[in-house]
């Protein structure tokens, strides 16, 4: 799913990385716990999180996550947006809650990490 579709579905505001909206995302994960993001995601994922500090951005870089969506109407401060810009990680913000955001993306065809594994296994 393209990041532009994610933006449309979640009616999200683009906080940085407007030029990267045609990024293709293979899978998504939703978590506020960064260690779980490191443990359970695959490269090329979209991260949905309510954690709006620098750690969300650094975790994204370390885990090869392509883009981040902040849920529940949470907004990072200017420093976090600058950090994301410097690392070329687009960030979006949606007013929808975590469960709602994940559900809406899933309904529109975004797959989870475990499904991605199956798809690879089958292919």
């Amino acid at each position: 799913m393209k990041l532009s579709e994610v933006q449309k579905i979640l009616q999200a505001e683009v906080l940085c990385g407007e030029e990267s909206l045609d990024l293709e995302l293979d899978t998504a994960c939703g978590s506020d716990l960064m260690s779980d993001v490191l443990a359970f995601t695959k490269r090329g994922a979209l991260l949905l999180t309510g954690l709006t500090n620098a750690q969300a951005i650094r975790t994204a870089e370390i885990a090869d996550i392509k883009a981040v969506v902040f849920v529940r109407g949470k907004r990072p401060d200017e420093g976090v947006i600058k950090l994301a810009e410097s690392k070329n990680i687009p960030i979006l913000a949606t007013r929808f809650l975590m469960f709602e955001s994940c559900g809406m993306l899933y309904e529109n065809g975004m797959v989870g990490v475990s499904q991605l594994k199956e798809a690879v296994g089958d292919g």
Binding site: L33, M34, S35, D36, L38, A39, T49, L51, Q55
Partner: peptide
Amino acid sequence: EMGFGAGMGLPNIKK
């Protein structure tokens, strides 16, 4: 509050 401290660090390193 930083999104850490859930007891996954060392297990993640080992993994």
